[in-house]
């Protein structure tokens, strides 16, 4: 009789097959297919040709696309930094609050994340549109010329991206701070460090792990942003995602779309790899 506590191989295979097969068909194969298409020639009809070429990858040699790539990195970096810089003091504030109050404060910061992503982006568009509430107020106060534009520039894109991703930074920082040894902060204060200095030199280094997690959680989706630059951004705030969309929907150059998406994956790769490794450590 087989040992009961060592489950049989046959069982394992049958139980694993459904999800493994699904992910193979709808993730692994499409991923490989995407990479292969990026080396195919594009046809005028919008179809993918036969044979192999690096033609599509030349988009990255064009100054226009290089600019978009650099901007994508810049906007993502600014978004990530902004999220961490806002989430650090916010998570600290939660830690200092009465214990009975803490879960509610955390909930208040995270709740908007559970409302529709698109609605959150749209709410800024509605708020900042040219005849909207903010523009009306600013015009009446004489701070904005009549018909002045608040939307469609890179700073607005960064702000709305911070808005949408902030909860993603709050959660890991809050988790890291809960493990923080408060005595070390007290000691620093007692030894004469001001609150800001004590925060930067004692608290921040000890929640490093949380900061890295926050950067990964915000950085990766930022690099792939599509909705925010499309909805509140203008021509000078186009990101890689917008270009991919254009290749798919407007000029129908599938190999180029595949090359741009592969480029995005390559840029995000170090972050993706790091977050997978951290996740694995968590599990074992």
């Amino acid at each position: 009789m087989p040992e009961v506590s060592t489950p049989s191989r046959r069982h394992e295979t049958w139980l694993t097959l459904p999800s493994l097969l699904w992910m193979a068909v709808f993730f692994a194969v499409p991923a490989l297919n995407l990479f292969l298409i990026s080396f195919r020639p594009a046809q005028v009809s919008g179809d993918v040709g036969t044979g192999w070429t690096t033609e599509a990858w030349r988009v990255f040699a064009e100054p226009g696309h290089q600019e978009v790539l650099v901007r994508t990195l810049g906007i993502s970096l600014a978004t990530t930094a902004g999220c961490v810089l806002l989430a650090l003091p916010a998570a600290w504030c939660i830690l200092l609050a009465r214990p009975s109050l803490r879960p509610w404060l955390l909930l208040a910061l995270v709740l908007p994340f559970w409302t529709s992503f698109l609605v959150r982006v749209f709410s800024w568009r509605a708020l900042l549109q040219s005849s909207g509430p903010v523009a009306t107020l600013l015009t009446e106060a004489g701070l904005l010329e009549d018909g002045g534009m608040l939307l469609y520039n890179p700073p607005v894109v960064v702000m709305v991206m911070i808005y949408t991703y902030l909860p993603l930074a709050v959660l890991p920082l809050h988790a890291a701070m809960e493990k923080f040894d408060f005595g070390t902060y007290e000691a620093a204060r007692d030894l004469g460090a001001g609150p800001l200095r004590a925060f930067w030199s004692v608290v921040v280094p000890s929640v490093r792990g949380g900061i890295v997690a926050a950067c990964l959680l915000v950085g990766v989706p930022s690099l792939g942003s599509y909705v925010v630059p499309e909805m509140v951004g203008g021509i000078d705030s186009e990101m890689l995602g917008s270009r991919i969309g254009q290749r798919l929907f407007s000029d129908r150059n599938l190999p180029q779309a595949a090359a741009l998406a592969s480029g995005l994956a390559l840029v995000a790769m170090p972050l993706v790899w790091l977050s997978l490794r951290r996740r694995k450590e968590e599990l074992t």
Partner: peptide
């Protein structure tokens, strides 16, 4: 762990 737009593009293609 990857940007969702990447999954969208890969699936569409």
């Amino acid at each position: 762990a990857v940007p969702d737009i990447w999954i969208g593009v890969a699936l569409q293609l």
